[in-house]
């Protein structure tokens, strides 16, 4: 078979690659609470996957909000392709400037966004915490998407030599929360987190969201 040629060639690579693959074990990811992420983070990436609206031409399956100081909302369809990417504040406009993410695979979109965050100084080499907030009526699907996104972000951090942790949680969205989040110019996910911090630290929601 022709494919055995490439398999044979891979089989003959140097010992150092084999040895590395024998000894490699992933470091455990730190899970951080919402409280710690607000207190300790230099930058917070906040990802929300949510149930979206169904339109005639394009069926939205999930809404992803990315919150650092920039706040970005991404809508994906059931095939994990981006339908729309919206900047929810001014910093996010800088991050998304010049990017056309429509019909792009979610993992590629994440790659582009992380790269832009890094380039524009919203992620640094000190420490970064990523909050992944998943919102979907189908809990199994939400869990799978959360795993996919957190895994992808971890890999990207690895590639770009960034240090950080990923915090995954299930979020809920209702109209009231959405209105409140809009009034602060943040995603529902970040609002959920801010509400938790506000309750834990006894500080006002205005301060927690800022």
């Amino acid at each position: 078979m022709k494919e055995t040629k490439i398999v044979e060639a891979i089989g003959n690579v140097d010992d150092k690659y084999i040895k590395e693959a024998v000894t490699y074990r992933a470091k455990k990811q730190k899970l951080h609470t919402g409280l710690m992420s607000f207190v300790a983070a230099a930058a917070v990436l906040f990802l929300v996957l949510g149930m979206g609206m169904f339109r005639n031409e394009v069926k939205a399956n999930s809404v992803i909000s990315i919150d650092i100081n920039p706040s970005i909302e991404i809508t994906v369809n059931k095939h994990d392709k981006v339908i729309a990417a919206n900047a929810l504040n001014e910093d996010a406009q800088i991050v998304l400037q010049g990017m056309d993410l429509k019909n792009v695979d979610l993992d590629i979109a994440l790659n582009a966004i992380i790269g832009s965050l890094l380039k524009n100084g919203y992620l640094d080499e000190v420490y970064n915490v990523v909050n992944v907030c998943v919102e979907n009526d189908d809990e199994e699907r939400a869990g799978q998407l959360g795993d996919l996104v957190s895994g992808e972000i971890s890999s990207l951090f690895d590639e770009k030599d960034l240090i950080g942790g990923v915090n995954t949680q299930l979020c809920t969205r209702d109209d009231e929360n959405k209105k409140l989040a809009d009034s602060y110019g943040v995603s529902v996910g970040k609002l959920n987190l801010a509400q938790e911090v506000s309750a834990n630290l006894g500080i006002s929601l205005d301060v927690a969201v800022a």
Partner: peptide, 27 residues
């Protein structure tokens, strides 16, 4: 490093996806 290990584990060791996921800490 992680991608290289994933590649080598699959095409040198012929690990299945579950084995690779367990070793590299991803799904």
């Amino acid at each position: 490093t992680r991608d290289r290990v994933i590649f080598v584990r699959r095409y040198w060791f012929f690990d299945d996806y579950g084995q690779i996921a367990g070793r590299t800490g991803i799904t």
